[in-house]
């Protein structure tokens, strides 16, 4: 079982992309973690058929 990348992460500073609840990013900043908050929205306006088409196209 290869866990090298996990052990590397343990030795590094966390750099987080937060996708979703803003409060999680705010809390990490209070702990001095570098965070990038995304402006996430449901893909294809939440249209399930379009989303599955996008998936098939590799997006």
């Amino acid at each position: 079982m290869n866990v090298k990348k996990i052990n590397e992460l343990f030795g590094k500073e966390l750099k987080v992309i937060n996708m979703g609840l803003d409060s999680f990013a705010d809390n990490l900043r209070k702990e001095e973690v570098t965070v990038l908050q995304m402006d996430w929205k449901p893909p294809a306006g939440g249209n399930k058929r379009l989303i599955s088409l996008l998936e098939k196209l590799g997006h």
Binding site: K15, V16, I17, G20
Partner: peptide, 9 residues
């Protein structure tokens, strides 16, 4: 340089 993605969507 990001190494972790936290997903709560």
């Amino acid at each position: 340089e990001a190494n972790l993605v936290v997903i709560s969507v």
